[in-house]
Structures are given as C-alpha cells and as structure tokens.
Design a protein around this nucleic acid. Structure first.
Length: 551
RNA sequence: GGGCAAUUAGCUCAGUCGGAUAGAGCGCCAGCCUCCGGAGCUGGAGGCCGCAGGUUCGAAUCCUGCAUUGCCCA
C-alpha cells in the first residue's frame, strides 16, 4: 500500500477519534529535511482553532493514536508549530519490492483518470515543409503526455490536425511551380511570401524528373494544381517517416479540407449565429468571444467571404467534442499563446467548460553547436530539421532532452554536447543505470546465482540507509506519474528518473551485491536491483525512450 | 500602446493544492579502481529565490506595484 493513502487513513481515524473531521485543506507531504520523518502533516495546525486547542496539544493527541496503529509505522512525533512527523518502519518500505515485482510493467499505473476520454492533438504542422526541431519537441511532449495519461487510466486518442485547406497550400504549389520552371531554365520569380527553403528546389527537381516537360505544356492552373498536390503528398510522406523514426504515432489524421467540404464549418457558424454568439458587422462575421473573457470579438468570415483559421478551428473542436472527448489537450507552439483565450472562449460557446480544453505550450528550442547559436527560420530556409537532429544525436537523446524542461520554457540544445555521450547528456546517466543492473544480473547468472521469489525473509535484509533510500524512491513512482498526469508535465518523470539513477549509482559504489559475501543478503540486494531496473524501464517507457540492457 | 509568460548558485534548470535550515546537473577545488560496467561515486566552496510592499502561525510559491527579458496583438 502506498505511504500516502496508508497514512491518510491512519490520520483520518486519529482525527475522527478527537471528534473532528479531517480538513480538506490538510496536507500530507514528504518534508524536505529527512530528520522530519518520511511524511508530515499540518492537519493539527489547521484544526487547532476549530478544536479550541493549541495546535501542538492537538498534535500530541493525534501522535498517540498514530503510534498505536501497528507495525508499519515506527514512530510519530510533534514538531515545530504543530507538525505531525511520521516515520515508517523498514517493513513498510520493504513491501515495495512486492508491489513492483507483482505489478511489473504495470507498476506506476493507476485508475486516477478512469472514465475520462481524452484526446491529445499534437505536432499538426502544416504540410509545407519538413518537420523542424521545434515540432520535434512538441512531438516528444505530446507523445509522452499520451503515454502518461494512458498510464493513469485515461482513455486516450492521439491526433494530427492537417491544415491542408488554406492559402499556405496554394503558396506551396506556387513556390514549387516557380522552382520547376527555373529548373527548366525559365525566368520565374518566387512568390513574394513563398517558401524559399532548399527542399522546395529539391522537390521541383524530382518533379521535373518525374514529369519532364509535361507541366510546361499544361495550362497554368492545372500545373499549379499538380505542383500543389504533389508537393503536399511528398512532404506528408516525409513528415510521416520523420515521426516514425521519432517513434511517434498518431491514431487519427484529421483533414481540415475534409472538414470544410463536409459543411461542418458553415454549420458551426450558423449555430453560433442562431444562439446569438456570432453577428454580422462591416460585412464580416464576428464571434462574440468577449462574452467569455477574451479581449475582443474575433472575425470568423472576412468581408471578402474568406473563412479565417479560427472559424475552422472552432468547427474542428466542435467535432472533437461531438466525438465524445471529455478532455481535449492541444499541444501548440508558444508563439500561438495569444490564441488560447479565444479558443477557450469558443469551447465555452460550444457549451463546454473552458477547462475541457487544455493547451500545452511548447517554447522555442535554441539549437547550438559548440555553444554557438544556429539560426532557424522556415521562411529564409535556414533551419535544422528534426531528421537531421535525430541522425546526429539519436532518437533517445533527442526525446529525453526535450522532456527535461518544463515545456513552456525555452530550451538550449547543444548538438555537439549531446553527441559526446558525456555526463552533460542525462539520458545516458539514466540508461546506464539500467544497463548496469542488467549487466549485474547477467553476471549473477554466470555464477549460477538465481533470483528467486522475494520472500518476507529475503527482503527483510534490506536495512541500510541506501537500501531504504532506493525503496522509498521506488515507492514514490506511482505518485510521480500521477503528478505528471495532473499537471500535464512529462518532465516530472525525467527528473524522477535522474534521481533514481543517482541513487542506484550511489548504491552500486557503496554496497557490493553479488560480492557481499552472504548468499541471503546477495539475494535480497538482487531483488532490489531487479525492482529498480523495472521502474527505470517503466519510467523511460512513459517518455518513449528505450532502456537498453547494454550500451 | 495593450496582453501573455519568465526572472532561483558562475552556467543550464527543478521546486504546481503556501510548510520547518531552498535543491540537482555542469563548471571549480580535494579525494575514491585487487572488487558486480569509472559512461560511476564521495566531500567542499558557491544564494537578499529580480526589487518593494501586502495577506498569515508560516511565502521562492498567493495578491499589488515596479524593473529587466522574450513572445503575441494592433
């Protein structure tokens, strides 16, 4: 049983026996200072006034009850202004071995989000160019979030929203058409806002090789149509293969074009007008987003009749909710943050709570080489693609580094450091912990040492300070996963794993396992190692990072 | 001009329902291989948690103002 829930039961009972109710605001937390116990509660301080007792006096009474709760709790004491500090017994922590090994891959999972249908929409890059490094960060975060939410009981669907209807597509077609003509020796200027990247030229060359002179003979509209369609297909194929290499899979690809063609956008606009949330003014159609806390009302259809992105985005989210999702999580680039209030307004206009949409913002990745900034800009064509980075540093290193920061703070990523496989590269530190244990297990096998069942007698040998440190850390894993789910923060898992790996390396240097000179003790420590390896695997799996047995 | 976010050790960053003496990695200094993987470990120095007020038993955390930086919008 987990420490938190166990203690909560004990404390609730103790408080009730004083004729008081457990206060909702009361906390049970691990104190920063280990000498203050494994868990501490401030309940007595909160209840003091109501009970008409000094907090310390009340705490004394609670402590007396806690002390009599059985063998799992070693002792409890009053401290400071009225904290109740609780120390669990070694027996309690040793049970963690059973929990980890009985549950195996499922250790850390919970039913916390059970009954909630969630959708994670991420990457959703326009098919106008290859994925760059920023998309990679969004991909890592979105994919990891989906894994974490599944692990906490949510029913999760992942989705890529394909902006294949807008003027960007036409621009792509025109850019390729211009390059195509240039390849054929015809003076054709690039469109003013056109895509200038090298990849456009390459696409044009390939198209030439495939089509020869044929496009020059066709009329221009037809040529543009072919360029556009062909370009989108080729770029999408590239995006798909990049995501594949990055170990990211979207269950659903949702086409904006099909959404528009189905009439869903028009219907959404009509619905908004019917309910009085959209109105005509100055020849345009406006959404009254100010009614839901946005700064100003927003245009849905311009006076020239063209629909805005916002209009199809509302229809898209209406479609999401129609499909039965209780919670929609959108992973966006942070440069779209100004878009959040109006989207949340739209969600409310659709009759949902604003919180049914959660937007996770992904800040910039600053690529560096040898400490120097690498310039990135899609328009100028100077940018580093995701596939280049993956080839350089590997998928594991890239994913892990993306998940070692809060997603909404910018990230400096030095490719040269990541390649060095040095200690600056934290993924190796964690993977090494796993490989180290696997190597130890292989050695044990060679020596004919078999890891048996972890009986009570065996695990009762785990009593050193470092044993308990590892056991406590293993016990914390399910809470860590749940916390990551609650705050939509995969980086909590990364930091946990770095902590756990640190404790393992420390343990390894201090306590021989196979060479400890005591068969029973060796068996106990082997069980601990097996459990640590299991949790490292489970944690890395939530990040989509591999756990190699040797490196 | 308005809005959103950020500001924590020399550097890069954790710290999300307010808790006790604020943490990690890198870098720097000093150590640890007869031994299961040294891609490791141990110890040390290093802080006005941007500044100033406020809320309370208690603030890096919540509120207000200011400063600086980044982004978005007109």
């Amino acid at each position: 049983m987990r420490a938190y829930t166990f203690l909560l039961d004990v404390l609730k009972t103790a408080v009730n026996n004083q004729g008081l109710d457990w206060p909702e605001k009361a906390g049970i937390e691990p104190p920063r200072d280990k000498s203050h116990g494994d868990l501490a509660s401030n309940a007595a301080m909160i209840l003091g006034k109501k009970a008409g007792l000094p907090p310390r006096e009340l705490a004394e009474r609670v402590v007396k009850e806690v002390m009599q709760s059985g063998p799992m709790i070693a002792r409890a004491e009053v401290a400071g202004p009225g904290f109740v500090n609780v120390f669990f017994s070694n027996i309690f922590w040793q049970q963690t071995i059973h929990a980890v090994q009985n549950q195996g891959q499922a250790y850390g999972r919970s039913q916390w989000g059970e009954g909630t249908k969630a959708q994670v929409e991420y990457v959703s890059a326009n098919p106008t160019g290859p994925l760059h490094i920023g998309h990679g960060r969004g991909a890592a975060v979105g994919d990891s979030l989906a894994r974490i939410l599944r692990a906490t009981g949510y029913e999760v669907s992942t989705e890529y929203y394909l902006n294949d209807a807008g003027r960007q597509m036409n621009l792509l077609g025109r850019s390729i058409w211009a390059r195509y003509q240039q390849v054929k020796g015809i003076q054709a200027p690039l469109p003013e806002d056109g895509y200038k990247g090298e990849y456009i030229l390459e696409l044009a060359r390939e198209l030439c090789a495939e089509q020869g002179e044929r496009l020059l003979a066709a009329d221009e509209d037809e040529a543009l149509r072919i360029c556009r369609q062909w370009g989108v297909e080729r770029i999408l194929a590239g995006i798909n293969s990049d995501l594949d290499m990055f170990r990211v899979e979207h269950q659903v690809w949702f086409s904006e074009q099909k959404l528009v063609q189905s009439g869903a956008v028009d219907k959404t606009l009509q619905d908004l007008q019917t309910s009085g949330l959209a109105y005509e003014q100055d020849g345009a159609l406006w959404f009254a987003s100010t009614r839901f806390g946005d700064d100003k009302d927003r245009v849905l259809r311009k006076s020239d009749g063209e629909l805005t992105y916002f209009a199809s985005d509302i229809a898209y989210h209406a479609d999401k909710f129609t499909r039965g999702f209780d919670l929609c999580i959108d992973v966006w680039g942070a440069d779209h943050h100004g878009y959040v209030p109006r989207m949340r307004a739209a969600v409310q206009a659709l009759g949902r709570r604003a919180d049914d949409l959660q937007v996770v913002l992904i800040q910039l990745v600053n690529l560096q080489r040898k400490g120097e900034q690498v310039a990135m800009s899609t328009r100028s064509g100077q940018f580093v693609t995701l596939s280049e980075v993956m080839r350089e540093v590997g998928t594991d290193a890239a994913r892990f580094i993306f998940l070692t920061r809060k997603s909404d703070s910018s990230l400096d990523m030095d490719l040269d450091l990541l390649k060095e496989q040095s200690m600056d590269n934290p993924v190796y530190y964690v993977q090494y912990a796993h490989a180290r244990i696997c190597s130890m297990l292989a050695r044990a096998e060679e020596r004919g040492v078999r890891a048996g069942r972890p009986t009570e007698e065996v695990i009762s040998r785990l009593n050193t300070e470092e044993d308990l440190e590892l056991l406590k850390m293993l016990e914390r894993f399910p809470d860590t996963v749940q916390g990551a789910a609650r705050t939509l923060s995969p980086h909590h898992i990364s930091f946990y794993l770095l902590d756990l790996a640190g404790s393992l390396h420390r343990y390894y240097n201090r306590h021989p396992v196979l060479n400890c000179g005591d068969e029973d003790l060796a068996q106990a420590r082997l069980q601990l190692m097996i459990s640590v390896a299991q949790v490292v695997r489970n944690g890395l799996n939530l990040l989509g990072v591999s756990a190699p047995e040797s490196m």
